[in-house]
Amino acid sequence: MMPSNIGYSLREAFTHIRRNWSTCLGAVVTIFLSLFVIGVFILGSNLVSNLVGSVEDRVTIQAFLNDGADQAAVDAYKAKLEGWDNVESVSYKSKDEALQEYRETMSNRNAEDAVAALDGQNPVPASLVVKLDDPQQVETTANKIVADEEFLAIADTPDNAAASVQYGKETVDRLFSVTNYIRIGAAVLIVLLVFVAFVFINNTIRLAISARKREIAIMRLVGASNSFIRGPFVAEGALEALIGSLLAILSLQVGWSFLKPQLQSSLQFLSFELSPTVVTGCYISLVLVGVVIGLFGSAIAMRRYLKV
C-alpha cells in the first residue's frame, strides 16, 4: 500500500496535523481512550485469569478410601489414575495427614471445640488427591472414578461411591461461569471500541479530504497515481493512531505503577504480578491495532475520491 513517496506523505501529513491540530486532536483522543480501555481490559482479564488460575490450581478431586483398604490395592489404583489422560498428579493423603489438615482448618475457624470433641479418635478417612491438567474437566473425571469398579473395592462408602468422591463442584461451576462472562463481555467491548475508533479516524480523514478537495482534483488532473494521492491521508491516519496508541501505553504504564502497590497492600493474599511478556504483548498489540485502524480508516475514507 505504501508507495515510493513515504517521505512526501509524512511531510504532508505533519503539515496538515499542525494546521488542523484541533480536528486531529479529536481523532488522537478517541484512539487514545479506546486503546486505553482496550488495554485495561486485556491487562485486567490477564490479572483475573491469573487469580482464577491460582484458584483453579486448587481444584482437585478427593477420593476417600476405606479404612480397611489394602495398601497394595491403593497403590495400584493410584498408579492407574496417574495413567489417565487428564490427570496431572495423584498423591496419597494418609489418615494422619488428613486429621492434621482438619485440625488446622478448624482452628482457623476458631472451632477448637470440634477438634477437642474428637477425643483421640480419627474419623477422617485416607484419600487419593487427584490434580488435573484441565480444571474444566473436573466433573467428567470425577464421574469416571465413581464408575470405576476398581475404586469401589477400596472406596470409603462402597454402597454410594459418589459420596466417596468429592470436588468443589459448585465453586468450580460458579468460577467458570463468571470468568467466561467476563471474557465474553471484554471481547464484545473491545470490538465495539475498535469500531468506534475506526469510525472516528475515518471521519477525521474525511474532513481532511474535503479540506483538500481542490488539491486532489488537480492531482488527478495532472496524472498522480492513486497511491500517491492516498499517501498523505493514510500517513495522517496512521500517525494519529500511532500517537493515540503511544499515549494509551504511557497512561497504562503510569496508571498500573500507581495502582499496583495500593491493590497489593489492601489484598495481600493475592498476587498482582503481571508477567512482562503479557505486558509487552499487550502494548505491541495496542500499537498494531491502532495503526491498522488508522491505515484502514483513512484508506476507506479515501476510496470515494479515487474513483476515476
Binding site: I218, V222, G223, S225, N226
Partner: peptide, 19 residues
C-alpha cells in the same frame, strides 16, 4: 482504471477557472 493516471501525464489540461 489504474492506467488512467499514466494517460493523463501525456495530456495537458487547461480550464476556464484556472484550478
Amino acid at each position: 482504471n489504474w492506467k488512467v493516471p499514466y494517460l493523463r501525464r501525456q495530456i495537458g489540461t487547461v480550464f476556464q477557472d484556472f484550478k
